[in-house]
Write a protein that binds this DNA or RNA. Sequence first.
DNA 1: ATTAACTGTAATTAATAAAGTTACAGTTAA
DNA 2: TTAACTGTAACTTTATTAATTACAGTTAAT
Lengths: 146, 146
Amino acid sequence: MRVSTRFSDSIHILAFIEIYKNIRLSSEVIASSVETSPVVVRRLMSVLREHGLIDTKQGSVEPKLARKPKDITLLDIYFATEGNKPLFELDKKTNPECIVGGNIQEVLGDYYEQAKIAAQRKLNDTTLQDLIETILVKEKAKQSTK
Amino acid sequence: MRVSTRFSDSIHILAFIEIYKNIRLSSEVIASSVETSPVVVRRLMSVLREHGLIDTKQGSVEPKLARKPKDITLLDIYFATEGNKPLFELDKKTNPECIVGGNIQEVLGDYYEQAKIAAQRKLNDTTLQDLIETILVKEKAKQSTK
DNA sequence: ATTAACTGTAATTAATAAAGTTACAGTTAA
DNA sequence: TTAACTGTAACTTTATTAATTACAGTTAAT
C-alpha cells in the first residue's frame, strides 16, 4: 500500500480555498496545486463537506470554507480524513493461548491510545489560520531573497 | 500495503523473551506466540540486536535482553523498528510554483514534527517493565475469573 | 566426524490499501 | 441546447508490507 496523503492533501485543499478565494476554484485548479487529478480532489472535498468543513454546490464552482480558518484545527481535519484510525498498529493476530499473545493487544492498545491522544492534542493547538499565515510568511521570505 | 506490525511485534518479542526467559526460546517458539513465521521473528530480532536491545548467538538458542526491562522504553523500541519515519505523511509531490504547494510541505512538516514529538514523549514514559507487569496483572485477572 | 537444529539473511511472492483512471449521472451556467 | 462543472462508483495501478522459499554459516548432540 502506498502511504496515505489524504490528511495532508485535505489541509492543502482547505488552505488553497482560503488563500485563493478570489479566483475561480474548480477542482481542476485545486488539483494542479496538489498535483493530483480533479476526481481525487472531489473525493476529498466530499469527505470535508460531510464533516462540515466546507460547503460546495453541485454543478457550480463555488467551494467555500464552512468555518473561519481560525475555527478549524488540524485535528478537525484529521478526524475528517482519518476518523478513529490508530496511529500505531497493533498486531491483531497473536496467540490468545499465550500470556503475552493473549494480553498484549489490550495492554499495548492502552499505551498507544495515550500516545495518540498526546499527538492529537498538539494537532488541536494549530488552526488552519496559523498554517495559512505561516505559508504566507514563508512565501514572502522567498520573494524577498529574489 | 498491509499495515506494519513491526513495532508491536517487536515489543511482543521483547516481552516474551523476558516473561519466558526460563524456557528454550527458539525463534520458532517466539513465532508461535506472535503468530508469524520464524524468519520474520529472526528478521525483527536482527533489528533489535543492531539497536542494542537484545543479544543473540548464531546457531544457538539463547536470546537475551541486552538491558533490564525497566531500562527499555517503548520509544527505544520505536526508534529501532521505525527509525525517523514520519507519523503523519506529507505529500511530497505538490506544485512548487504555487504559494500553497510550494510552502505547505515545509510548514506542515514542522507542525507534524511537533505532534510526533508529543507522541514520542508519551512512548518514552512507558518501559517494557511497565508493560510486562500490566500483562501479568491482566493474566492473573483472567485466571481468577475461571 | 557427521548430522540435526539452529541463527541469519537475501530473494521472491502474495496481500493490502492507497492513489490514479475511466465512466457516467446530475446540476448549473452560458 | 450544450459545455462545463460537481459527485460518485467501478476498475486498475502502485507502493509497501508480511509471508515464503532458499541457503550459508554456526552450534550442539551423537
